[in-house]
Design a protein around this nucleic acid. Sequence first.
DNA 1: AATATAAAGGACGTAAAGGTCTTTTTATCC
DNA 2: GGATAAAAAGACCTTTACGTCCTTTATATT
Lengths: 168, 168
Amino acid sequence: MISQTVEYALRAIVTIAQHNGQPCTAQHISKLTRVPAPYLSKLMQGLVRAGLINSQRGLHGGFTLSNEPSELTIWEIVEAVDPVQRILVCPLDIKSHGLDLCPLHRRLDQAMALVEEQFRNTTIMELLSAPGSVTPLCEETEPVSLHVGNASRSSKSAQHQNNSLIKN
Amino acid sequence: MISQTVEYALRAIVTIAQHNGQPCTAQHISKLTRVPAPYLSKLMQGLVRAGLINSQRGLHGGFTLSNEPSELTIWEIVEAVDPVQRILVCPLDIKSHGLDLCPLHRRLDQAMALVEEQFRNTTIMELLSAPGSVTPLCEETEPVSLHVGNASRSSKSAQHQNNSLIKN
DNA sequence: AATATAAAGGACGTAAAGGTCTTTTTATCC
DNA sequence: GGATAAAAAGACCTTTACGTCCTTTATATT
């Protein structure tokens, strides 16, 4: 349901986010996330093109987020990599239904809408610190030796928790 | 996100359900649902093995539902064909997390849980008649010319409508 | 300027999902 | 029992997701 590529992309993004602005090489990300390095590189290129991350070549190069983790949602990564397909018109091209969906497809699209909503409402920021939970993130045996330059430069921390979207 | 095969299977099941116990040939279903006939056949075999439908060979044979539409959920079809994969343990095999998920995977699994809930709570019955809506179902130009021999041979029609399952 | 480091690009390989075709088996009708 | 209608079974093909490898380009550091 969630493609391998989306999984990989999210792991990578979260890893970069953990490094507070410090460039992260593909090599490094690959090790931490256990994503095959060559495939990761490809993936990253896509994320760069989508404008979600910046890349820097050469020594001390690597990848950094284009925006604050608090401003970046799961949704944006999913959109860039393997978009959730909403059902907007009947997949059978029945003319008799204009834009109306039959009950089946209405229901299926509702499920997709829920996923979309969930993804839109979750920022990468929320994935970094485990609030009431155990683990900091996946992997990372060493506690990320980042030199903590200027961590939060714009912490709006909107943190909205609202749900609801589906109107049945 | 929803695989082609799941789409096809649901179309087929709904079509069979519309025929109130009258056997439906693969040919017929294929025409109505616009699913490639040979592929549909294969699909149907899987649904038979899963026990969701019965098959009958020979003249006047075809497929019928094993249970009432009101007792069959989208979930069961999805499970038989292409199960929603829940995230139960960290996909990276970090030992430090036992069964705990990192925030990322906890969130992703929540999304899957929502879909699962949606599917579990929707019966095929609910997909047959469009309550406040326009279309009876996808396709079906002619109003299903079944010869209505002994249509409903066991109409329990339980019709429950309850929701709720996800607890955050 | 030379070297090392790292991303970008593109050709290629592999596996799984989706799809087709032909033959065999089972049932019904006459 | 022969003809016909249907599903079952299994071999095959095609496309796409996933993954690898090698070469090129850009950027620091010395």
